[in-house]
């Protein structure tokens, strides 16, 4: 599954970083604590959060995540947008709350895994 497939299936807003829209998605991690994300998110995962400042992009870039999804209608700050465009790591948005966004994404990624017999 690619970032663009998530955008389509979950009807997400693409704020920035469109060059990364074909990034492959390997999974996801949900957290708003930056050290928790730093320690636990893996390369190629989507990061679900409500943090919007530029430091989320520093972490996204260092950890090479596939994309960030901002929940509850939050929008990224300008500095985050700039870095997202530079790095090609998309920042996406949804009106869903964290629980719902994580649940929907979990189901979607699991269906895909089932389809290709990755269990």
């Amino acid at each position: 599954m690619k970032v663009c497939d998530l955008v389509e299936k979950l009807n997400l807003t693409v704020f920035c970083g469109e060059q990364g829209i074909n990034n492959e998605v390997e999974g996801a991690y949900t957290s708003d604590l930056l050290s928790d994300v730093m320690g636990n998110v893996d390369e190629g995962q989507v990061w679900i959060t409500l943090q919007t400042h530029r430091n989320i992009m520093a972490i996204a870039s260092l950890k090479e995540v596939a994309a960030i999804i901002l929940v509850k209608g939050y929008k990224p700050e300008q500095a985050a947008i700039d870095q997202s465009n530079e790095e090609g790591i998309p920042i996406l948005g949804t009106d869903m709350e964290t629980f719902e966004a994580s649940g929907v994404l979990f189901t979607l990624l699991n269906e895909e895994k089932g389809k290709y017999g990755a269990f």
């Binding site: 708003d32 604590l33 930056l34 050290s35 928790d36 320690g39 959060t49 943090q51 400042h53 430091n55 989320i56």
Partner: peptide, 9 residues
């Protein structure tokens, strides 16, 4: 508030 300060660093 920025999400730092979890004491996990």
């Amino acid at each position: 508030e920025m999400g730092f300060g979890a004491g996990m660093g």
